[in-house]
Design a protein around this nucleic acid. Structure first.
Length: 578
DNA sequence: GCCGTTTTCGGCCCGACTGTTTTCAGTCG
């Protein structure tokens, strides 16, 4: 019984309704699904607390949807959905994944050729049964086969951390063209979602054809489609797609706004425009024929009576309502970050090498303008990581003290803090003695073993760690690895409650493989008043640049400077530690 | 099916491109 589960059903119902050509209902279900997906509170909890009335309070959920939800909570099923499935027993997820196939075409393919899944579709296409259908043709059949091939090889979405640097390289190449006057990333990349489906790039140029011709001849292009006078798409050998759109200078702001999305955010903006007697599109904001804004993005929001909304917040999860009331939070920025407390130096693998590493961490920290950097190696339970025992921690301490003295003598304004990333054992105890922990500047503790405990036990385990008087920070609190490993089962609300009581700080792990806490959990933590810290969990000095991803994630969770303790100067930071 | 600072009916976001058509439906973002 999860928000995601019921959202998926609603989304599928939207597709079934579209197959039947129903008017407006599909969008209603679509919207309800999206609102459930992004809902911060668990739908089961909402119902338990406030009954069906509380469900109807959720935007996009009315009487009928609320009844569906109750039915789902009580029986695990929705009758209307079951009827749809019986009538149209197609594997929607599979078929909708094929480019160019939507509900209408899928419906025809099922009714005429009894195509239910990808396998059926491939067989039919190979036997040339599809081209002769009315509304289809040779090209469509070929595209379907190509779409299936791509699906088989494709890995789906890409990690933000992987795709952002790739996109930046391509943007830099295009920016060099003299025909390009402005260029920007857009879409979910600009919103810094943790995974990216494809890259959107917006270019301002008065010579779109030249830009598009250069774009499609970039190295590594394996497919080109949608090539028109203002836009085109390419697929790169690396497996991801890039959509390029070229517009004129006077539309830069509106185009950037439009292509940044999200779709849901834009729909609401256009409705606000209509209410004001205006029309908003990628070309600009218009009153009748007259353009009243378009050149810069800020202007679009201003003319609609809204505060400027940062891209990371544009998901239609309440940001527009706040912007209308001039009450948007001032979210944290990369430049607010004053240090990084989760850096591994691999002391256990050789202290000479490790010392050199700590020095390089310090150098890079100074380059980034940090006031402090924290070394936190794994501890003894993690043998595979050469975790440190009490004695080694004490020895490491001596060396770090020496380094700090040296920095002071040379008049550098950086302090190296000494911590560790201790292991939270199955019973919630810590694998290092309290006396040794007490001598450190701070203690991070994290779960690294026995990840498959039940919810109750895992919650108790982390709570006990937070109550330890020496534990300051919980690293990667939910344990997920993006696209690889689920979160461990925990009662997150309970953890937030105890974090608030004990002053334990939750980490926003900036590693692009984790990004843990995730955006929705950051919002909940902020609501409760739990402090957070953005750490890179660097295992090599170069990984300190992960900080950017952590900050984006914090911004997506609406965290403000005051919610994040490593925005504070050293003295203030240390006050947060027990 | 949802929603309301034109409130309980009558609206519901906008545009490009493709492939099939011969004026447009379907898909995508």
């Amino acid at each position: 019984m999860s928000n995601q589960g019921i959202a998926r059903i609603f989304r599928n119902m939207a597709f079934y309704l579209e197959m039947e050509n129903a008017a407006f209902k599909p969008q209603a279900y679509e919207k309800a699904a999206t609102n459930l997906e992004v809902s911060v509170e668990d739908i089961g909890e909402i119902y338990k607390k406030g009954g069906i009335k509380a469900l109807e309070e959720i935007p996009g959920i009315g009487k009928s949807m609320a009844e569906h939800i109750v039915e789902y909570i009580k029986t695990g099923k929705i009758k209307e959905y079951e009827i749809f499935k019986k009538k149209m027993p197609v594997v929607l997820d599979e078929l909708l994944g094929v480019e160019g196939l939507g509900p209408r075409k899928i419906s025809i393919l099922y009714k005429v050729l009894d195509i239910k899944n990808l396998k059926d579709l491939e067989n039919a296409a190979k036997k040339h049964k599809i081209a002769s259908l009315s509304g289809f043709g040779e090209k469509t059949e070929k595209n379907i086969l190509e779409g299936i091939e791509f699906l088989k090889r494709s890995t789906g979405r890409f990690l933000l951390g992987h795709i952002l640097s790739e996109a930046r390289e391509i943007i830099a190449k295009l920016a060099n063209l003299k025909e390009v006057s402005f260029i920007s990333e857009a879409g979910s990349l600009r919103r810094r979602k943790e995974t990216i489906g494809d890259v959107d790039i917006l270019v301002i140029s008065s010579k779109p054809r030249i830009v598009i011709d250069n774009f499609v001849s970039l190295p590594g292009v394996v497919k080109i489609w949608g090539k028109g006078s203002t836009k085109t798409s390419i697929r790169l050998k690396k497996g991801f797609d890039i959509d390029l759109r070229v517009l004129k200078k006077e539309s830069f702001g509106s185009a950037l706004q439009y292509f940044t999305g999200s779709k849901e955010h834009n729909i609401v903006l256009r409705k606000i425009a209509i209410e004001k007697g205006l029309k908003l599109s990628e070309y600009g904001l218009f009153r009748g024929e007259r353009m009243i804004a378009g050149k810069i993005e800020e202007e679009i929001y201003e003319k609609l009576g809204l505060q400027f909304i940062p891209p990371e917040m544009r998901e239609n999860t309440g940001e527009i309502e706040l912007a209308l009331k001039n009450k948007l939070p001032k979210i944290v920025e990369l430049k607010n970050i004053k240090g990084d407390l989760h850096c591994h130096s691999h002391w256990g693998e050789g202290k000479e090498m490790s010392l050199q590493m700590i020095k390089r961490y310090a150098e890079l920290a100074m380059k980034r303008g940090y006031e402090y950097i924290g070394i936190s190696d794994h501890t003894k339970f993690l043998q595979i990581e050469h975790g440190l025992d009490e004695k080694q921690l004490a020895e490491q301490r001596k060396y770090i003290n020496k380094l700090n003295q040296k920095l002071k003598i040379e008049n550098y304004k950086l302090k190296i803090l000494h911590g560790c990333e201790a292991n939270i054992m199955a019973d919630g105890s810590i694998d290092i003695s309290d006396e040794a922990l007490a001598k450190l500047d701070y203690v991070i503790a994290g779960v690294h073993s026995q990840l498959k405990m039940n919810k109750n036990e895992m919650t108790k385990r982390i709570i006990r760690a937070m109550k330890n008087p020496n534990v300051d920070i919980i690293s990667h609190p939910t344990g997920r690895i993006l696209q690889k490993r689920e979160e461990y089962k925990i009662d997150f609300d309970e953890i937030l409650k105890v974090a608030k009581e004990t002053g334990a700080i939750l980490e926003i792990n900036a590693s692009p493989y984790r990004l843990d806490l995730k955006d929705a959990n950051i919002r909940r933590a902020k609501q409760i008043g739990v402090k957070m810290i953005i750490n890179t969990d660097s295992h090599q000095e170069e990984q300190m640049y992960f900080m950017e991803y952590g900050v984006s994630q914090a911004r997506r969770g609406w965290a403000e400077k005051g919610d994040i303790i490593n925005t504070q100067p050293l003295k203030k930071l240390l006050e947060f530690f027990k």
